[in-house]
Design a protein around this nucleic acid. Structure first.
Length: 299
DNA sequence: TCAATCACG
DNA sequence: ACGTACGTGATTGAA
């Protein structure tokens, strides 16, 4: 029933958002709301359309191309934030994993649990995945133990081993905090700043929060910079070549297009190229492109 | 009006 | 010793 009430947010509300003139739903993108430089979406928010549950997926299926001559094309960056932290920290163990096209969570699991790659268990990969994400947010042993089946002690050990495996990651994180203490802000690859007024707070909880921001903001914000560059370049090329296909949505690391079937073979490589080459890191960016008769299928 | 909850990356 | 994972928006119900 929580489920039904929550999804009535979508099932009841979205039909009322259809513009009578266009017959479509139009969201509004805010460029100066998110502290990290991400876009946000409102009226209605199309960046939080369900996907994780069966029921939610039914909602996502209702997003369809404009007519039978089009399909939806979804292009997603794969692990962009981990690639960015690998590149910015110059952590070679992680950079090489990406260069070799490895499954980063399995690769991390193999290293931290000291087992061959092909012997990584599901649980090991899952725990490594949780740490990989947690590291970007500044997770503690307590937080990690809450997110996994690990005890607090096991979580602490895992985090310690993680930093031994990727030593430059830890150095990078400390350097970000030091930079913030000295300058009062941190910055993204395109020099977008996030000011952190609490970085020198005497209140430890407040200060710790700002320190997590000092690490996270350049990562999340650089990903936002990169996809924005890609959007600009893709829009330019679509205009130059007079494509009928249109860019519809941005969902942080994903772009969704209403793609004309006859243009597919031309625009697919253009989209992939512009996204993967929007900004040069020392780590390759990887974009997965999917097609479908609806937004769910396109993934 | 605001905190809690839940949707997404 | 302390509290404990980043960034958003919409809905709901208590104050």
């Amino acid at each position: 029933m929580h489920l039904q009430r929550q999804e009535s947010t979508y099932v009841d509300a979205l039909p009322n958002e259809v513009n009578p003139k266009t017959g479509r739903i139009h969201t509004q993108y805010m460029q100066a709301v998110a502290a990290t430089g991400r876009l946000s979406s409102n009226n209605p928010n199309l960046q939080n359309i369900p996907i994780r549950t069966k029921r939610g997926q039914e909602v996502r299926k209702s997003f369809i191309p404009r007519d039978e001559n089009h399909v939806l094309l979804a292009a997603d960056y794969s692990q962009i934030e981990l690639r960015i932290i690998a590149a910015l920290s110059k952590e070679e163990n992680m950079i090489n994993a990406f260069k070799n096209g490895e499954d980063i969570h399995a690769s991390t699991a193999a290293r931290v649990f000291d087992v061959p790659l092909d012997e990584v268990t599901r649980e090991q990969r899952s725990n490594a995945k949780t740490v990989n994400f947690g590291i970007i947010y500044g997770v503690s042993a307590f937080g990690l133990s809450n997110q996994t089946d690990l005890t607090r002690g096991e979580a602490k050990e895992l985090i310690d081993t993680y930093y031994e495996t990727y030593p430059k990651l830890k150095a990078f994180m400390s350097a970000q905090v030091d930079f913030a203490r000295e300058h009062g802000y941190v910055e993204t690859v395109l020099k977008r700043r996030r000011y952190l007024k609490d970085i020198n707070s005497r209140n430890a909880m407040v200060r710790n929060g700002a320190e997590r921001n000092a690490v996270n903001a350049p990562i999340q914000g650089s990903a936002a910079d990169i996809i924005k560059l890609a959007m600009i370049n893709i829009h330019k090329r679509f205009e130059e070549e007079n494509f009928q296909s249109k860019m519809l949505l941005q969902v942080h690391d994903e772009l969704v297009f209403d793609a004309h079937k006859e243009e597919l073979e031309i625009i697919k490589p253009i989209i992939k190229f512009e996204m993967e080459n929007a900004f040069k890191l020392t780590v390759p960016l990887d974009v997965e492109v999917g097609l479908g008769e609806n937004w769910l299928e396109a993934h």
